[in-house]
C-alpha cells in the first residue's frame, strides 16, 4: 500500500537534513507504530506524507497505491485515501464543525467521482459516529476546534477520520494531551476502524498508546531514520530501557 524508500528530507531553506534514508513498507490491514525521541523526525515524516509545505525532499521515493505520492497536492492525497490526524489540530472559528465535515466528505466524493451525500444522510452518520467516539452533539454545532480542550480536539480528529474513511491513517501523537479516559475512547474509535484493507501509522513518543492500539510492527526512529524494528514487544522493551538504553548514547 505504502512504500517509502531511502527518503531524505530537509526543512525548506535549511541545509540540515531531518529525515535521512528512511524506508518503510506498509501493507493493507497493518498497524505500524513509529516511536522516537523528540527531534527524531517523526512529525516531519507525517507532514511529508500528508503534503504540507515547508519541507524539501532531497532523495528517495514514496509510492502509495501505485502512485508517486510526492507529486500530489494535499487534497489529491486526501482523495487517494491518506488522512493525517494532527498533533495540533487547527482552530477555525467562524465555521461550524458539522459544515466543515460535510464539505470535506463531499469534496472527497467529488474527487472520486462519487455522488455527494445528502444533508440528512450525512447528519445521521455524523451523529452516530460522534456518539461512538464520545463527542457530545453540541460539539458538532460549534466552530471547528475553537475553544476545544486538547482532548476534545483529538476526539474531533478521530471523528473526521471516522467520517472520511481513509485507506491510510497517520496518527501524529494522538495521545499527547489526553487523560486516561480520553485515551481509551479515542483508541476505541481508532480500533473500530481497523479493517483488512486499511492501514495505520501510529506516531508516538510513549508506549502507553500502544497498550490500547496494539501495533503489528514497531519501529524506533532516531536521527531521521529507523534504528530498530520489531513486533509489539519492542515497545515494551523501549519502555524499560529508554531510547538511550535501546539505541545507545547516539539516541
Amino acid at each position: 500500500m505504502l512504500t517509502i524508500k531511502d527518503l531524505d528530507v530537509s526543512i525548506a531553506g535549511e541545509d540540515k537534513p531531518v529525515i535521512k534514508g528512511f524506508s518503510l513498507e506498509v501493507k493493507p490491514g497493518e498497524v505500524h507504530a513509529v516511536m522516537g525521541p523528540n527531534g527524531s523526525g517523526k512529525s516531519t515524516l507525517s507532514y511529508v506524507l500528508a503534503g504540507r509545505d515547508g519541507y524539501e525532499v532531497t532523495g528517495g521515493t514514496v509510492t502509495f497505491m501505485g502512485q508517486d505520492l510526492l507529486e500530489m497536492e494535499p487534497e489529491e492525497r486526501a482523495a487517494a485515501g491518506i488522512f493525517l490526524a494532527m498533533q495540533y489540530p487547527v482552530e477555525i472559528p467562524g465555521v461550524a464543525n458539522s459544515y466543515f465535515l460535510r464539505q470535506a466528505v463531499n469534496a472527497l466524493k467529488k474527487a472520486r467521482g462519487e455522488p455527494a451525500m445528502s444533508a440528512a444522510d450525512f447528519m445521521k452518520k455524523l451523529k452516530a459516529k460522534a456518539e461512538e467516539i464520545g463527542i457530545r452533539p453540541e460539539f458538532l454545532k460549534r466552530d471547528v476546534n475553537a475553544g476545544f480542550s486538547g482532548g476534545e480536539k483529538k476526539r474531533n480528529e478521530i471523528l473526521q477520520l471516522a467520517m472520511l474513511e481513509p485507506r491510510l491513517c497517520i496518527l501524529d501523537e494522538t495521545d499527547s494531551g489526553l487523560d486516561i479516559d480520553a485515551l481509551r475512547t479515542v483508541s476505541d474509535g481508532v480500533n473500530a476502524l481497523r479493517t483488512p484493507d486499511r492501514a495505520m501509522i501510529v506516531i508516538t513518543h510513549y508506549q502507553r498508546l500502544l497498550d490500547y492500539i496494539v501495533p503489528d510492527h514497531v519501529h524506533v526512529m532516531a536521527d531521521g531514520k529507523i534504528r530498530k524494528s520489531g513486533g509489539k514487544e519492542l515497545a515494551l522493551e523501549l519502555e524499560e530501557q529508554g531510547y538511550e538504553g535501546l539505541l545507545g548514547r547516539a539516541a
Binding site: 509545505d53 497536492e73 487534497e75 467562524g94 465555521v95 469534496a107
Partner: peptide, 28 residues
C-alpha cells in the same frame, strides 16, 4: 498557511480552502 494545509489535507482544494478561511475570518 497551516489552516490552509489543514483544510486541504481533508480534501478541500486550494480555492475552496481559501474561500472557507476568508469567510471564517469575518464570520467569527
Amino acid at each position: 498557511p497551516v489552516a490552509l494545509f489543514y483544510l486541504r489535507s481533508r480534501g478541500l482544494d486550494r480555492d475552496e480552502a481559501e474561500s472557507l478561511l476568508t469567510y471564517a475570518f469575518a464570520a467569527e
